[in-house]
Design a protein around this nucleic acid. Structure first.
Lengths: 364, 364
DNA sequence: TTGTAGGCGTTATCAA
DNA sequence: TTGATAACGCCTACAA
C-alpha cells in the first residue's frame, strides 16, 4: 500500500520530516533507516553513511510518540507529589529524575494537593498516557476501589513514597519516621523536659501516625504521661503550625516536637507574635532538615529525612520492577538522623540543669 | 482492510482494550465510538448509550499516545529548569503547572544543571517528544547555532523564564532584577552604609548582570565608589556564597548585597564560622524571599521575586502562543518587592546613627 | 543486507 | 447518523 502522505493538498502546516522522507532521500528502505537509528542489525557501511547524510540534511529527529506507540513503551514515568512547592518534594523529585534520566526515562510531574480527587484524576491520566511506571508520594491513604482496580488491570508498576502499602500491593520506600520521632522525643526527655507537646500531621496519613507513635513510645520509655491537651493535629501545612502555636503555647509546654518543617515555620511565627523565644521559653525539635536551619537563630534541632535518597531509591525500585528483575513487593526503609543543634535547648539545659549529662558530650 | 490484531498468537502480554474492542462490543463503528468519546458530532442516543456501556464494561481508556500521533498535538509542554531542588524553582514550576493543568496540559520536567550540554540534550529530546511548547528557565546564555536552528525549524513555541531573549527570538517573562537590586542597595546606602560589598551571580547570565548593574547604579546614585575588592562573582550556589564570605568578610565591609538566596545561606555560614554577626557586624540584603526568612534570626531583609507568577505568567504566555492569539514576541516584566526586616540593620542604624531618618518611618 | 507491508490506537475524510 | 478506511510515524516479522 502506497502512502498517500505526499498527496497533501499543501494547505497543512509544514510537517517535520519522517522516516520515509529520510529513506527516500537516502534511497534506501525505512527498515534500513530504522536500523541505523537504533543501531541494530548489520547495515552496510555505504547504506549507513547515506542514511546519516540524509538525516543530517533533512535535520530529521525520530518522533518518539510514534515509536512509543509502536513499541508499547513510553520511557516515561509519572511522578505524583502533593505539592512540588512544599520544600520536602523538590529533592525527592530530583533524586528520582537523576536515576530516571540516566536510564533514558523522563518524568511527568503531577501535583495532587493531597486531594483524593486530583490524585485519581492524575492516576487515570497517567494510565492513559501509558507511562511505564508511577512514583506516588504521600497523599490521602485511601484510594477508590475503582481506581485501584484500574491500576491493577493496567499492570503499570507503582512505587509508593512515604506512604505505607496498606491494602494496596506495591513496592514502597519509606523513611523510618517512627524511629526518628522516638529519637527526637527521647532526646528532649533526656534533656529533662517533662511536658513535651506534639504537633502532628493529619492522622489519616500513615507517616503521621508513625511519628505520633514514636512520640508516644518515647514518652512511655521516659515514664512521662501523654497529655491530650498538649497534642495538636495539623495538616503538614504552615498555617496549621501557626494555629498549633496559638493553641499550645499558652499552655506553656517546656518543649514541643513538631512533625514537619512547614508546621514548624508556622509555629515559630506564632511564638514570635506571642513574644516567646526558643529555646529560652520552649525547646523545639522538628522533622525534616534543611541547610539554612543550621545558620539562622535559633539553630534548629531536627530529624533529617533522606529526601534525595527517597526519590532515587524509589526510581531505582521502579526501574527494576519495570525490567522485571524483581518478584515480590519490596519495602525499603531509609534511616533518619537526629541533628542536635540549639532549638532543643541542648547546650544550655545540659550545662545548667543537668551537668552530669554534659560530661558524656554525646551530641550525636 | 481487516485488522489482524486478534490473530495474535496469544503469547503477547494482555493488551488494554482499544477503540476497536469497544466498537465491536457496542456493535458500532470506531467512528461512532470516537465521536462519543470526544463528544462531537451528532450521535444517536441509542448508539451513545451502547458505546458508554461498552466502555464501562471493558474499562476502556483512550490511548493518549495514539491520539497525539493522529492529532499532531501532545498537550504536553516541557519545563526545563536548572535544578528543581534549588528552592527558587519549585514555586515557578508550580505556577506553571497550575495554569497548564487547568488548560488540559501536562508538564515534562527537565533539570539542566545549568549545563549547556544537558540543556541541549533536553531541548532535542523535547522536540522529539513533540511537546506543544517549552518553558525554558535560566541557564547559560548561549545556545549552539545548530540547536537554535532546530528549535526554529520545529516551530515549537518557547517562552524564556528569567533569561533575556538576547539573540534568540522568543517570548519571555522576567523579573525586574535591575530595579530590585537598585532598590535594595539604595536602601542600604540610605541607611548610611558607605562600603557595600556585592556577591553576584555568574556574569554570563543576563539576570546576574542586571543585578550587578542595579547595584552599580545605586552606588552611583548615592555617590559611593564601586570597589572591585568588595565584589565577588559567585555562581548562585551555596558554596560560592560561602567562599564569598571567606573572601569578603575579612575586608570588613559595612554591608553586603547578595544576589540570591543560596549564596546568602553560604555567606551566613562563613560569617558564623568567623564569629561575625549580622546585623551587628555587617548588614545584609539578599535577593529572593521565603516565608522562613521572617521568623528566624536575623530576620532577613530581602528582595522578593514573584516566583509563582513567573511560572504562571510564562505558562499563560505559552498557551496563548500555542493558540495563536499573539503576534510579535512579548516580554513581560514582573516587579520585585523590597521586604525590609532586620538583617540590613535598619532599626538599629536608623535609631542609633541616623535618627533624623528614622523619623520618616518608611519601611516600605 | 535490505525491502515490503502490517500493526500500534487514534482521528478524520468521504461516502452512504 | 454512521461505516469504511486512509492517515499519523514508527517498528518489525517475513521475504527476498
Amino acid at each position: 500500500m502506497a502512502r498517500k502522505r505526499d498527496a497533501a493538498k499543501g494547505n497543512t502546516p509544514p510537517r517535520m520530516p519522517n522516516i520515509y522522507d529520510v529513506a527516500r532521500e537516502a534511497k534506501v528502505s525505512v527498515f534500513t533507516v530504522s536500523s541505523v537509528i537504533n543501531s541494530n542489525g548489520q547495515v552496510s557501511a555505504v547504506s549507513r553513511r547515506r542514511v546519516q547524510a540524509a538525516i543530517e540534511k533533512l535535520n530529521y529527529r525520530p518522533n518518539l510518540l510514534a515509536r512509543s506507540l509502536a513499541k508499547r513503551q513510553t520511557f516515561t514515568i509519572g511522578i505524583v507529589v502533593p505539592d512540588i512547592s512544599n520544600p520536602f518534594f523538590p529533592q525527592v523529585v530530583r533524586g528520582a529524575e537523576d536515576v530516571l534520566q540516566k536510564a533514558g526515562y523522563s518524568a511527568l510531574l503531577c501535583n495532587s494537593d493531597d486531594q483524593e480527587q486530583k490524585e485519581e484524576h492524575y492516576l487515570d491520566f497517567l494510565m492513559s498516557r501509558r507511562v511505564d511506571g508511577i512514583l506516588l508520594a504521600k497523599t490521602p491513604a485511601r484510594m477508590s476501589p475503582a481506581v485501584r482496580q484500574r491500576l491493577l488491570d493496567s499492570r503499570i508498576p507503582i512505587v509508593l513514597l512515604m506512604r505505607s502499602a496498606g491494602d494496596f500491593l506495591a513496592d514502597a520506600v519509606m523513611t523510618d519516621d517512627g524511629g526518628g520521632a522516638f529519637e527526637a522525643v527521647s532526646h528532649m526527655a533526656s534533656l529533662g523536659y517533662k511536658s513535651i507537646a506534639f504537633v502532628s500531621g493529619p492522622l489519616e496519613v500513615s507517616n503521621a501516625t508513625e511519628r505520633r507513635d514514636g512520640y508516644l513510645r518515647a514518652l512511655k520509655a521516659y515514664r512521662l504521661t501523654a497529655n491530650p491537651k498538649l497534642m495538636y493535629e495539623g495538616d503538614y501545612r504552615m498555617d496549621s503550625g501557626y494555629r498549633a502555636g496559638l493553641t499550645l503555647l499558652p499552655r506553656r509546654p517546656e518543649a514541643v516536637f513538631i512533625a514537619n518543617y512547614m508546621m514548624m515555620i508556622g509555629f515559630m511565627k506564632s511564638a514570635e507574635e506571642m513574644g516567646l523565644h526558643c529555646p529560652e521559653d520552649f525547646g523545639v525539635v522538628s522533622f525534616d532538615d534543611y541547610p539554612w536551619l543550621g545558620f539562622f537563630r535559633p539553630r534548629m534541632t531536627t530529624v533529617e529525612l533522606p529526601k534525595y535518597e527517597l526519590g532515587s531509591a524509589g526510581a531505582q525500585l521502579l526501574l527494576d520492577r519495570i525490567a522485571g528483575n524483581r518478584q515480590k513487593p519490596t519495602l525499603l526503609m531509609l534511616p533518619t538522623q537526629l541533628r542536635v543543634r540549639e532549638s532543643c535547648g541542648f547546650p544550655q539545659r545540659t550545662r545548667r540543669s543537668r551537668p552530669h549529662e554534659a560530661a558524656d558530650g554525646t551530641r550525636r
